[in-house]
């Protein structure tokens, strides 16, 4: 759901970076408390995710490094540091250390009831804040400068929205793990984007897509042995995206291709008609018959276009001769004047 904002803000890969950056937070939280209390660990993840995010911001705004470099840099450095800490923890004499690496790949099956409640509560808060600041988020998303002139505290809104994205990611970590979290954030939103241009519909659709891929993914992974939940969910979400790419009515590839072909056909039809018109113009009688042969040299001409013209009543055929009808002549001359109009 929050992914919609990430996608529209062109920060898609931020999710990936944050989920990696959360790792040292988990490790440090564990080192400090020495216990595997999931809430404390999540807090640590949240903090280090936020540090990562704002560092990325700092790099982009203060140096000439580009956003992709900053993302890749923070992602790999934080993750490497996290790994260092994890391996360091493994050497510590602490029985609790096992299972920390679950956060890497996530295990939806290991979730316990309290985790689920926690997630539900956080989701609820996210929803509430989203509704509360809906207008502000929306306006910041599409026209940041305008927002500033209106007197909103853009920095505050920005931080708020970033915090919630980080929060959502950190929560999701437990379920699908570090590597696949970015897909969970992106895929539903990217799929939803194909179906609508309206933000509210998009957020709603993204939530539905996300929920569906969660349910389906879990169901599929439950039917088979040895199939971890996270990857299956991601695959299902990817299928959703693919489906949306191909079949969405206004932006999808399929319909685009169909439109493209239709346009080309139309153009050919018009070209043939214009060519005929040119020939016919040189004669006084518009219905003067001409041989089909002379059309053969013309590029846009095919039997199909001729048939189409006949069926549209623009042309009549008599044996191997054709002639323009009254209607066809009119349309063709209009075609010309329209083109001239367009050119002017």
């Amino acid at each position: 759901m929050l992914g919609s904002f990430a996608v529209l803000r062109k920060q898609s890969l931020l999710g990936d970076a944050i989920s990696h950056a959360a790792l040292p937070g988990i490790a440090i939280a564990f080192l400090i408390t020495g216990a595997k209390d999931s809430n404390v660990l999540l807090l640590g993840a949240l903090v280090s995710g936020l540090i990562g995010t704002f560092w990325i911001r700092g790099i982009i705004s203060k140096t000439h490094l580009k956003s992709d470099t900053a993302l890749g840099l923070i992602l790999s450095l934080f993750f490497g540091f996290g790994m260092l800490l994890l391996t360091f923890i493994q050497k510590q004499p602490n029985a609790n250390q096992a299972g920390l690496d679950k956060y890497l790949f996530g295990q939806a099956a290991t979730l316990i009831e309290s985790d689920v409640w926690m997630m539900a509560i956080v989701t609820g808060i996210c929803l509430f804040v989203l509704l509360l600041f809906w207008k502000e988020f929306k306006i910041l998303l599409f026209d940041a400068d305008y927002t500033k002139t209106l007197g909103f505290n853009t920095k505050f809104i920005d931080i708020l929205i970033t915090t919630f994205i980080v929060l959502a990611i950190v929560l999701g970590l437990q379920t699908v793990g570090v590597v696949l979290m970015s897909a969970m954030l992106l895929a539903p939103a990217a799929a939803a984007r194909q179906w609508t241009n309206s933000l509210s519909v998009m957020v709603f659709l993204a939530a539905i897509f996300g929920a569906f891929s969660g349910v389906f993914g879990t169901a599929i992974s439950a039917t088979q042995n040895n199939l971890s939940t996270g990857p299956v969910i991601v695959i299902v979400a990817s299928v959703f995206v693919l489906f949306s790419f191909v079949f969405s009515p206004s932006r999808g590839l399929l319909f685009k291709q169909i439109r493209f072909i239709k346009n080309r056909r139309d153009l050919q039809l018009h070209k043939t008609l214009a060519f005929m018109y040119n020939i016919v113009e040189s004669h006084e009688n518009i219905s003067h018959p001409h041989a089909i042969k002379i059309l053969n040299n013309f590029q846009g001409y095919t039997k199909g276009t001729l048939q189409k013209l006949v069926s549209k009543n623009y042309v009549t055929l008599e044996g191997s001769m054709w002639s323009l009808t009254e209607e066809g002549f009119k349309t063709a001359s209009n075609l010309y004047s329209q083109q001239n109009d367009n050119n002017e």
Binding site: V7, A183, V232
Partner: peptide, 25 residues
């Protein structure tokens, strides 16, 4: 349909998941 970074973010988790599933199976 989507920006470059989104495209990257979509492609690699999908491929990675396929790899993970293949290993697991």
């Amino acid at each position: 349909l989507v920006k470059e970074d989104t495209a990257i973010g979509l492609v690699f988790p999908a491929l990675f998941s396929i790899g993970v599933i293949m290993i697991a199976k």
